[in-house]
Simulated scan of single mutants.
Amino acid sequence: MLLIPLLTAAAIAPGVNAGAMLRFSCSQLVVERLDPLVNPGMIPSPHLHQVVGGNAFNVSMDPNSLDLPSAATCTSCTPAEDFSNYWTATLFFRARNGTFHRVATKGNPLGFGAANGGQTVYYLGPSGNSKVTAFKPGFRMTVGDPTFRSDAQLKKYPMLTFTCLQTSTTRDGATTSFPKAPCKVGIMVSIRFPTCWDGKNLDSPDHQSHVAYPSSGSCPSTHPVTIPQVFYETVWDTTPFNDKSLWPTDGSQPFVWSFGDPTGYGIHGDYVFGWKGDALQRAMDSGSNCNSDLLGNSLNCPALKSQTIQQGNQCSKRQVVNENLDGWLTELPGGMKVA
C-alpha cells in the first residue's frame, strides 16, 4: 500500500513551528441557530452555525453549572475524551436570481472522507521542548469579527484564510476573502486561534481579551502562558455550485456567510473547552508523535482513547430551532441581510 507521509504542523499551518500536534476528525453534530457564547440563552440566535463536538451543546452552556465531559453522552470527534464544542458560521450560495442554498460541509479528503461533514481540528504546540499548558475547565474563546468587511480590518487576526481546493492537497494560494473562481474540490476555511493566555481568566467580556497572538515568536508579558493553538479546517462542498451560469452576471463571487457577509472578511470561530480530565495535557505532553493518519481513521495517539470516524458520525443532536434550512430559500435564516 502506498503510504502518504504525515503533513508537518509547519506545512499545514504556515507560520507555525512544528511541535506537538493533534489532528483529528469531528463529524457534523448539528446545524443550528444557537450561539451560547455571543448570545447565551437566546433562542434563536441571529445567524446560523455549524457545530461539532460533544452533544451537550446547548443554548446557554454556563461554565458555572455545566461540565461538558459529564453532561455529554457522545462526541462527534475521534478522540473519545474530547467533548469540546467547535463552531463557525454557515456558508450559503446566492444564485443569480437572489435565492440562497446552504452549502454542506464534507469530510477532509486527506484521510477523513468518511466523516459526515464537520471539520478537521488541530491542537498545535510550540516547537522544541517549550511547555504548553492545556486549557482549564470552563475555558472558552472566539476569534474573528463578523462585522469586518475589509482586508485591513482582518489584519487584526492574521491566521483566518480561505483556500480554493483544486485538488485535495492544495495548500497554497490562501486568501483572506472568498475565492473569486470555482474551486474543483471545494473551499477550505482555516481558522487559527491565538496561542497566548493571561493565565487568569477562562473567558472575557468580548471572549477574546484573555488570549493573544504571539509577537516575534514570543507571548507578550500580558499573556505569558503558552496554550495549544486550536485550528479548524472546514471543507465546504461548493462543487454543486460551480456552474457559472448560476453566478452573478457581473462575474462576482456568489458565496455569503450566514450573517450576511458577501466578502468573507467577517470569518470567525467559537471554541468551548470540554476535554475529560487531563486528556489534552497528556496528548500535548506526548510530543509530535500524537498525530492522526492521513490515510484513515487511526488517531495514532497512545496517550488518548479514540473512536472511529463511523462512531463519530453516530453522534448528533436534534435541532432546537425548528426552521427550514434545506433547498432554495428566499432569504438567509433569521432574515439576515447581505451587506
Rank of each mutant, 00 (worst) to 15 (best):
residue 2 L to S: 14
residue 2 L to H: 14
residue 3 L to D: 12
residue 3 L to V: 13
residue 4 I to A: 15
residue 5 P to Q: 12
residue 5 P to V: 09
residue 16 V to A: 13
residue 18 A to L: 08
residue 19 G to L: 01
residue 23 R to G: 11
residue 24 F to E: 08
residue 25 S to F: 09
residue 26 C to M: 02
residue 27 S to C: 00
residue 27 S to I: 00
residue 28 Q to R: 12
residue 29 L to M: 07
residue 35 D to P: 03
residue 37 L to G: 05
residue 39 N to F: 15
residue 44 P to A: 05
residue 45 S to I: 09
residue 54 G to P: 04
residue 59 V to L: 13
residue 59 V to E: 14
residue 60 S to Y: 11
residue 61 M to D: 03
residue 62 D to G: 02
residue 63 P to I: 04
residue 65 S to G: 11
residue 68 L to S: 01
residue 74 C to M: 01
residue 80 A to K: 01
residue 81 E to F: 03
residue 82 D to G: 02
residue 85 N to V: 11
residue 90 T to L: 09
residue 91 L to E: 02
residue 95 A to K: 10
residue 96 R to V: 14
residue 99 T to H: 11
residue 100 F to Q: 00
residue 102 R to H: 10
residue 104 A to T: 11
residue 114 A to T: 09
residue 120 T to F: 07
residue 122 Y to S: 03
residue 128 G to C: 01
residue 129 N to Q: 09
residue 131 K to Y: 10
residue 131 K to F: 13
residue 132 V to K: 01
residue 134 A to L: 03
residue 135 F to H: 09
residue 142 T to A: 13
residue 146 P to I: 14
residue 146 P to V: 14
residue 151 D to W: 13
residue 159 M to F: 15
residue 159 M to W: 11
residue 161 T to G: 04
residue 170 T to D: 05
residue 172 D to E: 12
residue 178 F to R: 05
residue 179 P to V: 09
residue 180 K to R: 12
residue 184 K to P: 07
residue 188 M to E: 12
residue 190 S to Y: 12
residue 194 P to K: 01
residue 196 C to S: 04
residue 198 D to Q: 05
residue 198 D to W: 05
residue 198 D to H: 04
residue 198 D to V: 07
residue 199 G to Y: 06
residue 203 D to I: 14
residue 203 D to E: 14
residue 206 D to K: 00
residue 207 H to Q: 15
residue 215 S to H: 15
residue 217 G to L: 05
residue 219 C to S: 03
residue 223 H to D: 04
residue 223 H to W: 05
residue 225 V to W: 15
residue 225 V to N: 14
residue 230 V to H: 04
residue 232 Y to E: 01
residue 235 V to N: 03
residue 235 V to H: 01
residue 238 T to S: 08
residue 239 T to A: 05
residue 241 F to L: 03
residue 250 D to P: 11
residue 255 F to D: 14
residue 257 W to G: 03
residue 271 Y to G: 02
residue 273 F to Q: 07
residue 276 K to W: 08
residue 278 D to K: 11
residue 284 M to L: 10
residue 284 M to K: 03
residue 288 S to N: 12
residue 288 S to I: 10
residue 292 S to Y: 14
residue 293 D to F: 05
residue 294 L to M: 09
residue 297 N to K: 10
residue 298 S to M: 09
residue 299 L to W: 03
residue 300 N to F: 08
residue 301 C to W: 04
residue 302 P to Y: 01
residue 302 P to H: 08
residue 304 L to I: 01
residue 305 K to I: 12
residue 307 Q to D: 04
residue 312 G to R: 00
residue 316 S to R: 07
residue 317 K to S: 07
residue 321 V to Y: 00
residue 324 N to R: 10
residue 325 L to P: 01
residue 326 D to Y: 14
residue 327 G to D: 05
residue 328 W to D: 15
residue 330 T to Q: 13
residue 333 P to I: 03
residue 337 K to A: 15
residue 338 V to M: 04
